[in-house]
Nucleic acid binder design. Sequence first.
DNA 1: AATGAATGAGGGTTCATTCAT
DNA 2: CATGAATGAACCCTCATTCAT
Lengths: 216, 216, 216, 216
Amino acid sequence: MRPTTAARKRAAPARGPGKELRREQLIKATIRSVARRGFSGTTMAEVTREARLSLGIVNLHFQSKDKLLVETLRYLADEYKQAWEDALERSGPRAADRLAALMELDFSRAVCDRNKLAVWFAFWGEAKSRPTYQRICAQYDHEYNEQVCALCRAIVTEGDYPGVDPEAVATGLAAMTDGLWLDMLITPDVVDRKLARKACFSFLAAIFPAHFTVAP
Amino acid sequence: MRPTTAARKRAAPARGPGKELRREQLIKATIRSVARRGFSGTTMAEVTREARLSLGIVNLHFQSKDKLLVETLRYLADEYKQAWEDALERSGPRAADRLAALMELDFSRAVCDRNKLAVWFAFWGEAKSRPTYQRICAQYDHEYNEQVCALCRAIVTEGDYPGVDPEAVATGLAAMTDGLWLDMLITPDVVDRKLARKACFSFLAAIFPAHFTVAP
Amino acid sequence: MRPTTAARKRAAPARGPGKELRREQLIKATIRSVARRGFSGTTMAEVTREARLSLGIVNLHFQSKDKLLVETLRYLADEYKQAWEDALERSGPRAADRLAALMELDFSRAVCDRNKLAVWFAFWGEAKSRPTYQRICAQYDHEYNEQVCALCRAIVTEGDYPGVDPEAVATGLAAMTDGLWLDMLITPDVVDRKLARKACFSFLAAIFPAHFTVAP
Amino acid sequence: MRPTTAARKRAAPARGPGKELRREQLIKATIRSVARRGFSGTTMAEVTREARLSLGIVNLHFQSKDKLLVETLRYLADEYKQAWEDALERSGPRAADRLAALMELDFSRAVCDRNKLAVWFAFWGEAKSRPTYQRICAQYDHEYNEQVCALCRAIVTEGDYPGVDPEAVATGLAAMTDGLWLDMLITPDVVDRKLARKACFSFLAAIFPAHFTVAP
DNA sequence: AATGAATGAGGGTTCATTCAT
DNA sequence: CATGAATGAACCCTCATTCAT
């Protein structure tokens, strides 16, 4: 029973599919906010201001800030998964090409966007103390690693790489990608996409010399 | 005077060098807290409780929470730097041995402690939106990378590795380490120290076959 | 036109007398809500959900939550007044019988419904700080007390009760009823309708021994 | 990590026994607030303003608003219990005197204070939907009723009241008191302490004519 | 007439910081 | 130096109210 000043302007009530749109709008605003202000600077006020919506709307669509953040993480993970599935789809049938396609994606402008990287690391930074984040990250990681591992196995099989352990290579490769993202985040003027890509393909060329070269 | 009037138990007055001890005590408590509760769960109350000291003491020794966190980051970075300098000191004169020593350190139990990794990633997760963190990380990164780069150059020079770009290798190597740490943080039951070490040395063995093997 | 296009189920349009029905529907939902969740747990969302209507409908029919609550109180008071008027109507002409009828009503299952009692006490609990509630309660109280007082006076007059002050008796009687309701609300397993009724009639039998006995 | 403007004025930190004082200070402020603004108008801001303390202090001493309210109820109940125990202590040994002392207390200025009555009814109004309140009320009610019941039994035994059921009388008496309090709350200009007292003693005089008279 | 997404003031709560002791 | 009660800005969340549909 609170004295309330009448609302002034108002976004058109989104019917039907609009609900999903609002959610995405808020998730995107969250990503921008985390990128700009960090996890601790990401308040409901900040997110809704970024989305140009009212304060109460997050709880209307996500129940709580916590759930918004979880959904944001899922959104990012889904987006990335979609991207690498698409990349595989578009690439040829040869395992090396497919692996190259994944790596090219990882160093594409879209993925290496520093804002998005910042958000990924923000979630990773909280993962240890938030089981939910950790679980989500672990699950998507697993799917991705399986894929990379399968490709490495295929390459090892088809090529003549007797001493190569595909699992170790896959692990190292995926790890290097993550680490290069960190470099691009922390020292953007030391490690750029080009150097990152080169580091990655140097690795591949060293492991699978018959399949990869450093040159683009 | 009877024992009734015994002074309340209280922490030692700590003058001069004692002051430094208090600071370290608080920093260590901060590390434990960030590891356990995450960045957002790390409050002054939590830190001081962890240190078994009074609430007001942080501001006495660090002026503000912000500064405590910055000092904590510096502490971690210094500790790591000290560790790799010591590792180099202890190792022989050959570049490959020295590089191996660095890598062994990175996958030693002390460094791979999940609590400490959590704190590192917590800081990295906030780095984009906190210039101070980013600057500190960037600076220590730089020193470390210079070192690794120098070693790679030396190995390339002394060995016969015509097509190898030492900078790219060094970047990739350091990145892989970071990425493996992330794996140990997020999916500890998939990537353990042993696998991480193997992934790393697989890389080195592939790049510098005359200098490294995967076996310990 | 195929059944596919059937209109969404929706509440009847309710014109004219239908409007009154909607109001009652909402008031009854309010009563249920206050009984279950208390005053503070009674939100517009709760009330409309309870009434299986849409959120906006309260303001359409009552302008505000405040007015809904006032109307709810009036509804309860009217209902009770109607009940005791009916009880008097049904009873014989003798004052003692009429008073007994009022008391029987007060301990009838319909009136002693714990949900309704809870609502009454909810309003009484807010009365001091809400002049409107207090005024409404006071007004209905007055009418009721007048009636009880008149009956007591009649009994005193017709019987031989020289020392009895009918006003004090009426006041005490009405008060006892309220107090017994409170007991049934707070300690339902200590004071039930039977005990309450007995306490009340013990009082009447003591005051007006020629007119009342404790036995039903 | 919030930018905080330095606090200006500050109540002296209460050491040792001061903690208990602060709690009482806040409970008393809560009572005043509930009396004036009702349950729904009793906000943390209101309570702390009333206590001339800062906003955060309630959570420091009571953890939550809920607990403050529970403690307030307990405080009121304890206070009342203390009062009737004192009244019994001060009164003579005869059961009728002791019962009279309890009744005199119930209509004393201290107990009939409309602010306090308002708070009692505020709690009773929420009791149905708040098991904690109900439990506390029920427990204290029980003790009080036991006492009154015992006294009634003693009077019945010592006097010659063959048809009197002491339990019913005790229940009725306690109920009447509560009901008279409600009257004093809702219709203070109809029922004042004098009339209330008279109603109560009329009842006693009617039940126990050998022990009570209406006159003071 | 009816709906329910949207709004935002105001609520309870947290916590970095201060300062009397 | 050390303590911890006190402060109050800022947080997340609730919910009465509005209004496009």
